[in-house]
Each structure stands twice: as structure tokens, then as C-alpha cells.
Design a protein around this nucleic acid. Structure first.
Lengths: 338, 338
DNA sequence: TTGTAGGCGTTATCAC
DNA sequence: GTGATAACGCCTACAA
């Protein structure tokens, strides 16, 4: 049972003290050039691998950030994760990941784990049914800064990176109204979500701006299940005066809605037009894509959230940091090839 | 600057020793019922949060597994990650993640980091150009078991979970030949990948089994870039006797190939048929999906890899563990609705 | 330029 | 049942 080489082991071989080795390995200027070289040489020979658990323990710093996402298999979050991992790894930080599956209790357990793990910071996109935010107090006590991302709880004094839906939706509404649509529907999401409220509000403003009346029957709510998406679309098409354009809560809703519309004999981008949120890369390959997507740049959002987090981590007195709100402007991507 | 409560702090308050508190918190049977209760009560009052960095250091165990994937934004790997995270979190393990972006050097650095981090085990899907596997020696020295997954290096004595492509491809070949195709092309991947060789071999066997000749001009190789995918398909369609069916390396290749075929005036699932690997959920929404997909069950593969890893972690003498090879049978999913 | 000593929070061993 | 003590590997005043 041969043990792993430690700093002490290197010290013994070179007849110097452990502190000298420690300093030499960090290229501390106070250590002589010769000694430093000799230490590095032996370290290489012995294949010394520093023990991060000891370092983390001593330094009270793990070089790890915790990331909590609702669902890793959703393209949007996978892209965000990618951006976060990129940014963190460039800063030599590790990413500890947890998926809540939109379950508040699971989410709580994940955060609990990350607290005991003493991650240096957290990035969280909260689950749909999270109502208890007591964990924020603990995080404060532990000096673990947290940045929310995309799914933002309605709380004061929090850091977040998110998308400003306004520009994208307004562009889409302007466009739709501009080409003559007057019956524009909205398949919205769960009312508990902030972004649902936002969509509704901006949608209403868009109609107003275009001098159109709000028709309550054109606003429906899906719980985001496939079944619910389908039935929403069905309801809309069965109206006495059905919509000619539909804005859907996200791409997954759009997929289902488009499917339903086709099944009900509608010609996509002819009889009826769709606008969706998120812009899955895959749309480019589809035959009946939405006429426009409202791009929310998940990768960029992830990067930005990480940047905010690292800015806080780099501060000398993070506790004095003011909350940072980063709003990335959404943007309409048109697929109208007239 | 009020410090966080530690075991010592609890001990002081109760006028007992730190050892007693530690044991009580773990509900050790040797500690009296009353003491145990009192400790738990105070711990709750003080909101004691155990310091995992200290525990990891002391126990030489981090309750963390390292996961290295080529690309988090690929649906296949995102699904696998989801399976791995599920399994690990159910066992109260954390997942540390790194994406190599199919870059051997990046991958090396990630693994380096996970070594110093002293993860308890690793799951790796190697990058395309990884040739140096010296890190395996270090991992052995560190007693960090490693399980390879999906992308398996050609080395002896390794644990892995992967998909056996044979059943899926054979089913697809049988099907295609059965309905009368005799010009079946293969758009294969980079020759460096084991799975490329496998696809070629099984494809050949399939032809032989169906008493068809191997036509070398029907076998082309893509570097998996969109451009390369497109040009592969173009080459095939420009043959004097073009294929009527094409098996593509994966879904992304299929997307491009189908696009090219359409652009060149081919009617999908009429003039020409496609078979692809992986079965992205999105195909169900597409108008011209491949007639069949060879499903590789990424979530399940991820779960299985994790299961293998935990079996090793649970062993008393893991160093004596024989390599475990888990091959999940691929399966053809038909979209033929005749 | 280098060495000494102490300690981070927890657990295991041994003693009582 | 409980306590005292040492140890894990590393870093950092402070001393020399």
C-alpha cells in the first residue's frame, strides 16, 4: 500500500522543510531559483498531485460553483450549461451540477448538498413550484453568492441574468400586425411563472400599440404538457373567429401546436403563422418552422450569469456588493423568406 | 465576523466533547439517547451545516464523481448526463462536469483537475482525438475508478458501458433489403472513431446477409461538419447509380443529408430513404424524418455507466475488480407507417 | 532565503 | 457512554 506523495514527502527527499516546498510549488518569489527548480523536478518525478481536499479545507475555498437547473435534457438549459461550463473552466473553476426536474423538494436537497459542499458560488434557475427561499439565508451565512438565471424568483435584492422579453415580443407583434394579422393568439405558460405574466403584458402592449383590441378568447394557458399544448391549439382553432397567428410559450409548445394545426388541416405559414420563444437550432431543418423565433440566447445568458458570479467572487468585500441585474435583450429571428 | 457553528461549538454549548457531538450527529448507538437528542436540537438551533471539505479531507472521500463529455449541447450527451445525474443524486453523490469539446488537450486539463479534486470516480466519453491515455495510470494510483461510456478507447482492461450497434443496424439492413432496396449507402464518420469501424463492419455483414455486393462508391466518410455532411450526400446522389437508401452516422448528419437530398429534388421517403442513429425526440415532429432510427438509449447508457461505477465504489477491494463491459443492445425504431 | 509551529473541522482510536 | 488526543495535507504567520 504505497501512499501518494505529499508535500512532506518531497521535503524529506530534498532535506528542506514542507513550507519551502509549498512555496516553491507556487513559485513564491522568496524561494531561491535553485530550490524552486529542484522542488519542481522532484515533484514531477514523484508525480505529485496536489490534494485539493486539503487545500479547499485549509483555504476555505473549493474552486467549485454549483449549478442547479430544472432539466438537463432541455436544449435551452443544455446550451446554458455549456456557456457556464466554458466560462468557469476558463477560470479554473469546476462546475457541480444538479437537476431539479422542476421539483421544489429535489431542488432543496440539491442546494442543501451544495451548501455542505461549500461551493464558492451558485447559479440557479429555480424550479416551477419553488416557494420557499429560506436557503438564501444560509447561503448568506456561508458567504456563498448566488446568481439566478432565466427563471427568476420574485424577490428583492437578488442577482440575476435573464432575458428581457420585451424587444423580441414587440418586434414579433409589430411584424405580425404589419403584415396584416389582426387575430393574434397567445398560448401562454403556467401562471405561477413570472415569464408568463411578462409575456401576457408585453403581448397586450403590442396589441395596443398596433391599435388592436385584446380578445380574451385568444389567450389560453398550457401546463406545458404535450396534451395541454394540443388542446390549447384545438380550442383556438375551434373558435368562431380563429387566429391567423399564434405566439407560443416556447419551442416545445410550438412543436405540439404546429402538429395540431396541421392535423386540423391548417397550412402552416399560409393559413396560420407561428412565433415561438427560444429558437432551437433544429428549426432550420424543419419544413414548417415558426415564421419567427424570439431568441433568448441561453449560452450567452449562462456566460453572463457566470460573469456576474465571478465578479462577486473577485471582490474584496463581496458582502457589500449591490445586486446585479443583467437583462439581455431578446431578439426576433425571422424565417420569413418572401 | 461571526463564524459558522462547528462541532466544537455545539460541544462547548452542551459541555460535552466534540467526539460525542460527532457521534451523536451520526446517531452512533454508543451515545445515549438523551445526549443524541440534545445534540440534534442544538445543531438545529445553531443551524449547523457540516463542512464537507473537512469531511472529504479526513475521510479521503468526496462523494463526487467526475463526468467528462465531449459536448453538453448535444442532445445525446445531455440525455446521458441526465441519466447519470439521476443515478448519482439518488445515491447522494455529486456530479462534477467538464466538456472537452472534442479537444484532447482540454480533456486532459479537465481530467487533471478532477484528479486533484479527488473525485471518487469518473465517467468519461473520450474526445475524438484522444490518443494519450497516461492519465489512467494516475487514476489507478489515486484509486479513482473510471468507467468509459459511449466513446470507448481501444484499450484492454477498462470498464465501459456502450451500445452494441449490431442488432439495430442489422434490423435496419434487414428491413431495407426486405422492402427491396439494393443500393444502400453509408455516410460514415471519422475513421479514428471505433464506432465508425463498427458501423462499416456491421453494414458489410448486413449486405452480405442480404446477398448484396458491397459497392465501395456507396461508402463515404464525413468529418461531421455540416459542410462535409452536405458534400457526402451530394457525392452519393451524383453517382451514375445513386442509392435509394442511406444510413447516416448520426442524427445531425441525417439532418444535413436530408436537407441536401431535398434541395436536389429528391422526395424523402419516396425516392430516397434514410436511417439514422440516436433517435432525437424531435424527429417525431418533422415532416421528413428518417424511415427508421437506430436507438442507442443514452439515458440508459448513462445510468448503466453510473451503476458500474458505484458497484466498484461499493466493493471492499476495488483494485481486484475485473473490468465490466456492458453492452446495451441498440434497437431499430421504425417510422414506416404503411 | 528558509524553518518552525499551529491550525483549519472532522473522525477514529484508545482510554476511562 | 463519553472524553482526550492525534491525525488527515496543506498553508502561513512568525522566527531565524
Amino acid at each position: 500500500m504505497n501512499k501518494l506523495p505529499t508535500i512532506k514527502e518531497i521535503a524529506k527527499r530534498l532535506h528542506v522543510s514542507a513550507s519551502t516546498v509549498s512555496r516553491a510549488l507556487h513559485n513564491h518569489p522568496s524561494i531561491g531559483w535553485v530550490t524552486t527548480m529542484r522542488v519542481h523536478k522532484i515533484a514531477l518525478e514523484l508525480n505529485y498531485i496536489p490534494n485539493q481536499t486539503a487545500i479547499s479545507f485549509k483555504q476555505k475555498k473549493t474552486f467549485t460553483i454549483g449549478l442547479v437547473l430544472p432539466r438537463l435534457s432541455e436544449a435551452f438549459f443544455a446550451a446554458a450549461l455549456s456557456g457556464i461550463e466554458d466560462y468557469a473552466s476558463a477560470r479554473n473553476y469546476n462546475v457541480l451540477i444538479g437537476q431539479s426536474l422542476d421539483n421544489a423538494e429535489r431542488e432543496y436537497r440539491i442546494i442543501e448538498g451544495m451548501k455542505t459542499h461549500r461551493v464558492d458560488g451558485m447559479i440557479v434557475s429555480v424550479s416551477q413550484d419553488t416557494e420557499n427561499f429560506e436557503f438564501l439565508d444560509d447561503l448568506k451565512r456561508l458567504h456563498i453568492p448566488i446568481v439566478f438565471f432565466d427563471r427568476i424568483p420574485n424577490l428583492p435584492h437578488i442577482n440575476y441574468a435573464a432575458c428581457n422579453l420585451e424587444p423580441g415580443i414587440m418586434q414579433a407583434m409589430d411584424y405580425l400586425i404589419g403584415v396584416g394579422h389582426s387575430r393574434i393568439a397567445l398560448i401562454n405558460g403556467p401562471v405561477a411563472l413570472l415569464s408568463t405574466t411578462q409575456r401576457l403584458e408585453i403581448y397586450s402592449n403590442g396589441l395596443k400599440k398596433g391599435s388592436l383590441e385584446i380578445a380574451p378568447e385568444l389567450i389560453v394557458y398550457s401546463d406545458l404538457s404535450a396534451q395541454s399544448n394540443h388542446s390549447c391549439m384545438k380550442v383556438l382553432l375551434n373558435l368562431p373567429s380563429p387566429p391567423t397567428a399564434v405566439i407560443t410559450f416556447n419551442d416545445y409548445v410550438a412543436l405540439d401546436a404546429i402538429e395540431t394545426a396541421k392535423a386540423m388541416g391548417q397550412l402552416i405559414n399560409k393559413d396560420i403563422f407561428f412565433v415561438s420563444f427560444a429558437n432551437m437550432p433544429i428549426w432550420n431543418y424543419m419544413d414548417y418552422p415558426p415564421v419567427a423565433s424570439i431568441e433568448q440566447f441561453p449560452y450567452k445568458q449562462g456566460e453572463k450569469a457566470t460573469e456576474i458570479l465571478f465578479n462577486i467572487l473577485d471582490m474584496e468585500f463581496p458582502e457589500t456588493a449591490l445586486p446585479v441585474h443583467y437583462l439581455l435583450d431578446s431578439k426576433m429571428i425571422s424565417r420569413n423568406n418572401n
